[in-house]
Computed example of a mutant assay.
Amino acid sequence: MEDKYNQLHLEQYSKQLANLLCDRHFATHDSLNGPQLIGFTPVKQTNLFVIKELLLKWHQEMATLRSPYFDYEHEEVKVALLNFMNVLSRKILMKRNAFEPLLQKAIYDTFIVVLAPMVTFEEKFLRIQEEITLPKLQENLKYIDIDKHLFAGFIETLSPGNRDREYILSRFKLYLNANQNSRTSLSDLIAQLSNLLAISENEVLGKPAPTAVPVSRTAPTPAAPIEEKEVVAPIHNAQRETSAPTAKPVYREDEDGEEESVANQRPTLNDNFRKASPTSLADAHSNRKIDSLKNSISINQRFSFINELFEGDNMTYYQTVKQLDEYTDAEAAKLYVMQEVAVKYDWSKKQEHVSKLLRLIDRKFS
């Protein structure tokens, strides 16, 4: 099973640690080169993820080189570009403003390997592949250090004909469940990272820190009386409701002619769904039609939905998005969300995230 985690705290910690490590390095260096990158942190997985992000940047830049005047698919051109990439990979040189965001994401992704290996497998092995093949999956193992045996062992179970992403993900989930005991523990990772910047397991998992049991001691009698300050004890909800002054209720007639208190009418889940927040300028910029929810939800937005709307349940999130993509109109999709999913996870107090999901549904069927 994958652990529930506090995404916001992980993002804040990753940003703080990246900032701290960059402060140390760039205090005496103007830039960062390849050899320095390989051992930049004592956590090898973090360094490998930075390198993998650089590889993605390279492919993005190469995509811009396509031209109507030259044949980039010619074998000689492909070989030349590969040689060029090999030379360039040995000439890495980054300023702080380019490197720090890569480091921040790599630190965050290092946590995710331990907390949500399903997410890691999808992002690092499947999402970047236009076509899934065993050699390409095995190639990505170069950038995995934590639980590498787990990912490698699963890939060995696949046949060359396994190319369906959803099928592979479902197989990987079963494989994880059968090999829980071989996973790296969160405490092991925290022990490494805490040497760089303190963090606790409770903070990562969003659990309250244990409170120390007070030791009863006899306090010395003060030499002179001091002015006492009023201490307000916590009030139980029932006591608060009893003691709080009540306003005069306002009544109106219901459908049967009976008087009904307006104050006692609580908004329903459907009411909350109707109160969608107004579209901001940033949202307006992103209101263009999308073909697929699955492919249009960003990584950060996906983590936000999983944690806030699905209580950290990755698989239910994926199944829900897949189901929504199969609908043919927005009303049917929204009805499914309201009647099936929202009730299960009680989305009545999560209007901001619900509104974002509904806007994505509208864009898909616009």
Rank of each mutant, 00 (worst) to 15 (best):
T28D: 07
N300A: 15
L281V: 08
V87G: 06
T64H: 08
V215T: 15
I112N: 05
S366W: 10
E260C: 08
T242K: 14
A98G: 00
E75R: 01
R90D: 09
K136N: 07
F49A: 12
E130P: 08
N202S: 00
Q319P: 00
W58R: 12
N181M: 03
N47R: 05
I361N: 03
M338A: 09
Q60K: 10
R288T: 07
F172R: 01
V77H: 13
I297Q: 02
A333R: 07
Y167F: 11
W347M: 10
D313V: 07
I361Y: 02
E2W: 04
Q192M: 05
L81M: 13
T211D: 09
S67R: 05
S298D: 14
P234T: 08
D283S: 02
L324M: 04
K229P: 01
T46Y: 03
P210H: 00
Y336C: 02
G39C: 10
S243V: 10
A330E: 14
V87N: 11
N264T: 14
E76L: 09
G312K: 04
A276H: 03
W347L: 09
R165P: 02
L186C: 00
L196T: 02
E260K: 11
L269Q: 08
T120Y: 01
E326L: 06
T120L: 07
D23N: 15
I92M: 13
D313L: 02
S286K: 14
A106T: 04
P117I: 00
K57W: 11
L196G: 03
P234F: 14
F49R: 15
P222N: 09
P220V: 00
R359G: 14
A223G: 14
L88D: 12
Y317P: 02
G312W: 03
S170T: 09
Q36S: 13
L189K: 08
T133M: 01
L324E: 03
F172V: 01
I132N: 12
P222Q: 05
I297P: 03
I92H: 05
D164C: 03
D329C: 13
I190L: 08
S261L: 07
R183C: 02
K364D: 10
S187V: 06
A233I: 10
T211G: 05
T268D: 04
K356Q: 13
L56V: 15
P208M: 01
Y327W: 05
A212D: 07
L169N: 03
F84A: 14
T328W: 02
T268Y: 12
L21Y: 00
S286I: 07
K334C: 07
L174E: 15
S280N: 02
Q60D: 11
S277D: 10
Y5K: 10
T218Q: 09
F99C: 01
L65M: 12
E130S: 12
F303Y: 12
K105F: 01
K356L: 12
H29I: 02
K105L: 06
L10I: 15
I132T: 13
K289T: 10
P245S: 07
H353L: 04
